[in-house]
Structures are given as C-alpha cells and as structure tokens.
Design a protein around this nucleic acid. Sequence first.
DNA 1: TATGAGATCAACT
DNA 2: GTTGATCTCATAC
Length: 191
Amino acid sequence: MPLARIDRRFFARSVHEVAPELIGATLLVGGVGGRIVEVEAYHHTDPAAHSFRGPTERNAVMFGPPGHAYVYRSYGIHWCLNFVCEREGSASAVLIRALEPLEGLAKMRRRRGLSDERLLCAGPGRLAEALGITRAHNGLPLDRPPFKLIARTETPKIASGLRIGITKAAELPWRYGLKGSRFLSKPFKAS
DNA sequence: TATGAGATCAACT
DNA sequence: GTTGATCTCATAC
C-alpha cells in the first residue's frame, strides 16, 4: 500500500479545511510518533490565536509560509506544536493536541518517564515531550526530516467541539478529533 | 472524583 | 505585575 507523504502544499489552504483533514494522518518526528487524533484550529479572526494581535518575536513563524512547524512555550513549561496554514488576511495554524502512539513507544515512554500509553501523547504538552519537540523545531518545514507526515488512507469519523483550556473565544467549535479514540486529551460530547 | 498549587516564560497592561 | 492554546502532584471529599 502506497504511503503518500503530505507535502507543504497541503497546508496552503484555510485552517478550517486543513484541521479536520489532519485527523487520521500519521505524524513522525525522528521516526517517533503516531496517528493524529485531535487538533484545534486557530484562525486569525480568533482572539485566542497568537497571531490575532499581529507578529511578534514568538509567533513570527506563523506569518511565514504554510507547511512549517510553529513551536511555542506554554505556561513557561511545555512546548506545543502547531502546523502553519495559509494566511487569510493574517496568520493561522493548527495546534496538534493528541496522537495515538504507534512508532517508537519505548523512546516516548523514556522521554515521558514511564507513563501510561494512553497518556503518552494525550495533550499538546505531553505530545511535544514524547516526540522530543523543542524550540529547535520552530520554523522547520513539515515535509522534510525530522518530520514525516503520512496521509490517511481512509476517511475517519470526525468529531468536533469546543476548544480546551482557553478563555478567549472559548465558544468557537474548532476542535476536531477522531470519534471514539481512547487517546484524546478529553472526550468529545456524544453527538 | 475533584479541586488547588506550583512550575516558569513571553506577551500584554 | 498579570495571565495564558498545560500538566503533575498533593490534599480533600
């Protein structure tokens, strides 16, 4: 079965198209990773997006070309991984929130310190730690090593709902997930 | 099970 | 000086 790589042109579209299509795709960083089961879209019209107030030193990558990684420090402790999408007036990106671990389990467990498999990548901070994401990955293209993105081979059932952990524009339903997955950072309401 | 504190950086007021 | 796209551990119910 051909494993189609996703190249950076995939991201040259609206976040709202890209985000749900990423569910079910496989993300590997240095050969370690798994299937994407949860993402959130951050659009430039969205007060919760880092790009909302214009470019800064931190979010500069979001204002660059699509198909690159935007990595930022969250709450001073965690790293969070985003995929930059097309600018529609201003910058936008997809936050990768959870993976189903498939490759390099031992390595991920070591990095995370003997964690339950279900919690290895369930949440943006955990995911970044398990994949070894740091500032060094900020601005790297997603279609070149150490990144490897593989297109999904079938269309999964997508759930959508409210985003998590934010206070601004929390009512926007721009969180997407793989329906029924046990690797989500939080369950979606049944719908 | 549920709430609360702490860790600690960059942007914002 | 405060707050946030978070997580973990501790203590309380």
